Computed example of a mutant assay.
Amino acid sequence: MLRDSIENDIEYYNTDRNQWTLIKMTPAEHRNHLLSATIQGLSFKNLYLKP
């Protein structure tokens, strides 16, 4: 019961909860965003530079 509750909280935190420090994305969305940029040849530090 406690284990299920903890697993549900972790699942929510990683997949549903938007986070201000991750550009209002969930951690899973942010990870996929960074992986997509890396595959396209962009560097991580250039993703957050404003024009």
Rank of each mutant, 00 (worst) to 15 (best):
Ala28Phe: 15
Thr26Tyr: 08
Asp4Lys: 07
Asn14Lys: 05
Leu49His: 04
Asn8Lys: 09
Ala37Gln: 13
Tyr13Cys: 04
Lys50Ala: 09
Lys45Arg: 15
Asp9Gln: 02
Thr38Phe: 10
Met25Lys: 05
Asn18Lys: 15
Asn46Ser: 11
Glu11Gly: 04
His33Gly: 05
Ile23Thr: 00
Ser43Ile: 04
Ala28Lys: 15
Ile6Asp: 01
Leu2Tyr: 02
Leu35Val: 12
Ser5Ala: 02
Asp9Thr: 02
Leu42Lys: 15
Lys50Glu: 09
Leu47His: 03
Asn18Cys: 09
Ser43Cys: 04
Thr21His: 06
Leu35Trp: 09
Tyr13Gly: 02
Lys50Met: 13
Lys24Ser: 04
Gln40Glu: 11
Pro27Trp: 13
Lys45Asp: 07
Met25Cys: 03
Leu34Thr: 13
Arg31Asp: 14
Thr15Trp: 07
Arg17Pro: 01
Asp16Gly: 03
Ile6Gly: 00
Gln40Cys: 11
Gln19Asn: 01
Thr21Gly: 01
Thr38Tyr: 11
Lys45Ala: 04
Pro51Trp: 11
Ser5Tyr: 03
Arg3Met: 03
Asn14His: 11
Asp9Ser: 03
Leu22His: 00
Glu7Asn: 02
Arg31Glu: 11
Leu47Trp: 05
Ser43Met: 04
Gln40Val: 09
Leu34Asn: 07
Ser36Phe: 11
Met1Ile: 03
Glu7Ile: 08
Leu2Asp: 00
Tyr48Phe: 10
Ile6Ala: 02
Leu47Met: 11
Asn46Pro: 01
Tyr13Met: 11
Asn32Cys: 14
Asp9Val: 06
Thr21Leu: 08
Asn46Trp: 07
Ser43Glu: 10
Asn8His: 05
Thr38Pro: 04
Pro27Ile: 15
Thr38Ala: 10
His30Thr: 08
Thr26Leu: 13
Arg3Phe: 01
Asn18Phe: 08
Tyr13Thr: 08
Asp4Tyr: 05
Glu7Trp: 04
Gln40Arg: 15
Pro51Asp: 12
Asn8Thr: 05
Leu2Phe: 01
Thr21Trp: 03
Gln40Tyr: 14
Tyr48Ile: 12
Leu49Thr: 01
Ile10His: 01
Lys45Gly: 06
Glu11Val: 10
His30Lys: 12
